[in-house]
């Protein structure tokens, strides 16, 4: 937990705020984006280590963006975790097939969230 850069992408403002707060409290450096476009810009400019991506975004959805990023050699190394409220059968599969490195469901547990993200990062060092 030493200031790794995490980009959180979600079109819901309240969610963004919540997640950003929790991760920030856990010691990460956090930026937010509300759409795929904003996310691309942030990734290009800021080079985060991890992207927490809500799958339902306006315009280009999260999974499409994931595929895009994983296909691009410049961004292939990016860790992407799908962040979704779907929780329906097959959603996890879809996310992993699209190239996500992990999968998280909302609503988050604020108490354990930071820890889980850190553990994930440790695993994928």
């Amino acid at each position: 937990m030493s200031g790794e850069r995490i980009l959180v992408v979600d079109d819901n403002g309240a969610n963004l705020k919540l997640v950003a707060f929790v991760l920030g409290a856990a010691g990460f450096e956090v930026r937010t984006a509300k759409s795929a476009d904003e996310a691309r810009a942030a990734i290009a400019e800021w080079s985060p280590l991890l992207v927490l991506m809500d799958v339902q975004l306006p315009g280009t959805d999260g999974l499409t963006l994931t595929r895009e990023l994983k296909a691009d050699p410049r961004t292939r190394k990016l860790l992407i975790v799908a962040f979704t409220a779907y929780a329906m059968r097959g959603d996890e599969q879809k996310a992993l097939e699209a190239g996500c490195d992990g999968y998280l469901t909302k609503p988050i547990d604020t108490r354990t969230f930071g820890g889980r993200v850190a553990a994930f990062l440790a695993e994928h060092e």
């Binding site: 819901n12 969610n15 997640v19 979704t84 409220a85 909302k106 609503p107 604020t110």
Partner: peptide, 28 residues
């Protein structure tokens, strides 16, 4: 539609529970 609805319903809950937790735990 159901998938959409499911997402729609969970999203605000995420904020409600999340923020409530933060406040409850004295994070803020």
């Amino acid at each position: 539609f159901l998938a959409n609805m499911s997402h729609e319903l969970r999203t605000p809950l995420n904020a409600i529970i999340g923020f409530a937790e933060l406040l409850h735990d004295g994070q803020v």
